[in-house]
Amino acid sequence: MPVRRGHVAPQNTFLDTIIRKFEGQSRKFIIANARVENCAVIYCNDGFCELCGYSRAEVMQRPCTCDFLHGPRTQRRAAAQIAQALLGAEERKVEIAFYRKDGSCFLCLVDVVPVKNEDGAVIMFILNFEVVMEKDMVGSPAHDTNHRGPPTSWLAPGRAKTFRLKLPALLALTARESSVRSGGAGGAGAPGAVVVDVDLTPAAPSSESLALDEVTAMDNHVAGLGPAEERRALVGPGSPPRSAPGQLPSPRAHSLNPDASGSSCSLARTRSRESCASVRRASSADDIEAMRAGVLPPPPRHASTGAMHPLRSGLLNSTSDSDLVRYRTISKIPQITLNFVDLKGDPFLASPTSDREIIAPKIKERTHNVTEKVTQVLSLGADVLPEYKLQAPRIHRWTILHYSPFKAVWDWLILLLVIYTAVFTPYSAAFLLKETEEGPPATECGYACQPLAVVDLIVDIMFIVDILINFRTTYVNANEEVVSHPGRIAVHYFKGWFLIDMVAAIPFDLLI
């Protein structure tokens, strides 16, 4: 008679799926529990143990900040960024110097990925580790590398530091407007667009060049630039800015003055950032001319202004700041037409079709709590990747769950009947059967004279019903998954307890 339990259901295979997918890609990662103190490590794979030199037993239950890997060259700011990422709910990448158990130093890129439950609360953290440099290539500990984003994938490793954006290309926007319009339909740009040429040739750093990471940081200074100062900065030398009595002219307006920039070969870094931020506020060169004239017309309804409409929906549905990093990277690809469009465009503009998908598509409701890094690593669709929660398995109709209350009560009843059979069957065979043979035949009273025979008949009927119930009862397979398919249940029961239950259900007393 089957006594099969499996009270692990309803099970959740999400954690096993993450481990299996990460292991298949030869990654070095740990999984931490966000619900406990210090976000203790609950799993670390073999790749991480080989990377740091510690065994799994030495890593388990330690804080996922990996303070046991810190050393003299470990930056405090990087460690603080990892700790801050564990307090938030967004994906974050941090470069930090770690030390192995043998004392060797290596520069590592740590990717902190939160995993949320159905309520939107962070319950786990996945920390992925990628070695960037070994100890002989690690720089000085005073050099802070965590304020910069990861290198873009479309640049060669040897040319990542030679990417320079020439400031004269930004200063000569109005001069290039006529050349853009003359391109017409034969050019790649839309009317009114501004073409910015980027020099990728390796050259020595000069005062006129600005690194790509500095251009990325310009967006942080746009908020500090007032509207009046932006307007004066875009007017140009024809209309000098008016300053109040006793007030000095704005240095932001002076930063885009061609006369002032041409007199000296070098520009201050602050002026460069502010000038680029001011130019980015204009949607095209037409807006710059309109600002000089004193009238700013409404933005025209053409394809170039609607190019950012799908980007707005993608940004609203993005799951991490990696989408913004990807957008900034692609927006700086050289030799393309940049349409400086305000994100607050007309909502009635139709979304044009684009061959290049900048932001990841909208994630469906079932995966809105899973970050983009987890979705990318697992390579699963929205119909396959579940949320991290207890999910009731989908069972067929008329199927009994093996952990249901009805099955528990039924098993206790069958257990009592088995005990009765084990006690009274030998007793009936030894004593009652002998008395029946010696006594007179009682054929007239039937079952009324033999109450134990009636009980034995009921017990046999219950055993037959138990066999039928076992054909529709779920079970737990070797992978700790609840199986509810009727065919698989029948095959599993035939290979197991079916023969024993059938022999126990045969009414031998009635056959004798």
Rank of each mutant, 00 (worst) to 15 (best):
residue 83 A to F: 06
residue 12 N to S: 07
residue 282 A to R: 11
residue 303 A to C: 06
residue 15 L to I: 15
residue 338 L to Q: 12
residue 312 R to Q: 07
residue 220 N to Q: 06
residue 194 V to S: 06
residue 248 L to V: 12
residue 358 I to S: 09
residue 226 G to E: 06
residue 276 C to M: 07
residue 135 K to E: 05
residue 173 L to K: 15
residue 353 T to G: 12
residue 157 P to Q: 06
residue 343 L to Q: 13
residue 133 M to C: 15
residue 257 N to H: 03
residue 81 Q to H: 06
residue 120 G to Q: 14
residue 333 I to H: 14
residue 221 H to M: 15
residue 115 V to T: 05
residue 118 E to G: 10
residue 110 V to Y: 01
residue 324 L to E: 13
residue 271 R to S: 10
residue 67 D to N: 09
residue 379 S to D: 04
residue 293 A to D: 04
residue 356 R to H: 14
residue 221 H to N: 06
residue 80 A to R: 13
residue 68 F to M: 01
residue 8 V to T: 15
residue 240 P to S: 09
residue 324 L to W: 08
residue 186 G to T: 07
residue 78 A to V: 04
residue 350 A to W: 06
residue 321 D to I: 08
residue 314 G to C: 10
residue 281 R to S: 07
residue 90 E to S: 09
residue 238 G to H: 14
residue 16 D to C: 06
residue 186 G to D: 10
residue 214 E to S: 06
residue 102 D to G: 05
residue 188 A to E: 08
residue 17 T to V: 14
residue 376 Q to S: 09
residue 147 H to T: 09
residue 286 D to I: 14
residue 84 Q to G: 09
residue 151 P to M: 10
residue 72 P to F: 01
residue 190 A to W: 13
residue 57 A to C: 12
residue 194 V to G: 04
residue 61 Q to F: 10
residue 15 L to W: 12
residue 75 Q to L: 07
residue 287 D to L: 12
residue 28 K to A: 13
residue 314 G to Q: 07
residue 351 S to R: 06
residue 338 L to P: 15
residue 80 A to S: 13
residue 272 S to H: 11
residue 70 H to P: 01
residue 293 A to F: 15
residue 218 M to Y: 13
residue 42 I to Y: 01
residue 85 A to D: 01
residue 73 R to M: 06
residue 7 H to L: 15
residue 367 T to W: 15
residue 73 R to T: 11
residue 380 L to M: 07
residue 29 F to C: 01
residue 140 S to M: 15
residue 16 D to F: 10
residue 101 K to P: 01
residue 246 G to F: 07
residue 348 F to W: 06
residue 385 L to F: 14
residue 46 D to H: 04
residue 326 R to T: 08
residue 325 V to S: 12
residue 169 A to V: 01
residue 215 V to C: 06
residue 66 C to H: 01
residue 137 M to A: 15
residue 305 T to L: 13
residue 337 T to K: 14
residue 67 D to P: 14
residue 59 V to R: 01
residue 9 A to V: 12
residue 137 M to L: 15
residue 370 V to G: 04
residue 149 G to T: 08
residue 219 D to H: 11
residue 183 G to P: 09
residue 334 P to N: 08
residue 348 F to A: 14
